[in-house]
């Protein structure tokens, strides 16, 4: 099995850059979460059990405002729906050594970056490699959140306020290259932004909870664009 040439050590090594990246993004999330009124331990628990940036960021306002559980559920389903496609793709990268119980664990850690590294390997990947790969990202995400949550209470207000934009900065960094590359994506991003702003600023629509506003804006826009501007490529290109 060529796929089993990938060792635990190599996976661990490949996971370190992901872990370092997560450390800083999770730091910003930790600040955001505690600033929104969540406790330090609550913020860390959210990161430990979800390991997803956009889904967690959308969840915090719902949780801190005591929003409905259904809204939270639907928000997570929509925002994380892209993972279903990545998991389908990832399942085809696994070598014979990967068993059912391994899949149950790798599913938990199938983040955008872990997925990107695993599928970029020329041959199929072994279970040992996968176990190595997911360690640093998990540790980076959890520890980064803890640091951010603690720092949010210590750092001066002006620094906390500045770091409040960090996660959104990361989102913009993910959006821009694809917006530049693909005109359909640019149009879709503009339409989704316009819808989201309508929900926020129109008095009649602003009664709708933030989570639902994101769901309606993104699903509606994506449905319309899938109809009028379907994509041609075989490989999905999500890297969020």
């Amino acid at each position: 099995m060529s796929g089993d040439n990938f060792s635990f050590k190599m996976g661990l090594y490949n996971g370190i850059p992901i872990g370092l990246g997560y450390l800083s993004v999770a730091f910003a999330f930790g600040i955001f979460a505690t600033n929104s009124g969540l406790g330090i331990l609550e913020s860390v628990f959210i990161s430990m059990f979800n390991v997803t940036s956009a889904g967690q960021l959308a969840a915090v306002p719902i949780i801190s405002s005591g929003g409905s559980v259904f809204e939270l559920f639907l928000t997570e389903v929509v925002i994380n729906s892209r993972y279903s496609l990545m998991s389908v793709s990832l399942s085809q990268k696994f070598g014979d050594s990967v068993r059912l119980r391994d899949r149950l664990i790798f599913g938990f850690m199938n983040t955008d970056e872990v997925f990107a590294v695993a599928v970029s390997k020329p041959a199929s990947v072994s279970r040992k490699y996968m176990y190595g790969l997911i360690i640093a990202p998990f540790v980076g995400w959890t520890v980064g959140t803890l640091f951010g949550a603690v720092a949010g209470n210590i750092l001066p207000d002006v620094l906390v306020s500045s770091l409040g934009i960090a996660i959104y900065g990361m989102f913009i960094a993910i959006l821009m290259p694809e917006v530049r590359r693909e005109k359909s994506t640019m149009l879709a991003v503009i339409v989704a932004t316009a819808l989201s702003c309508l929900f926020f600023y129109l008095p009649q629509l602003s009664k709708i909870q933030g989570g639902f506003a994101i769901i309606i804006s993104s699903v509606l826009t994506s449905l319309v664009f899938a109809l009028i501007r379907p994509i041609d490529n075989e490989e999905e290109e999500s890297d969020v």
Partner: peptide
């Protein structure tokens, strides 16, 4: 196509 657009429209509206 739908799943391709979702991350970008979600991020934009978030």
């Amino acid at each position: 196509s739908f799943l391709y657009y979702i991350p970008y429209t979600v991020l934009a509206s978030m």
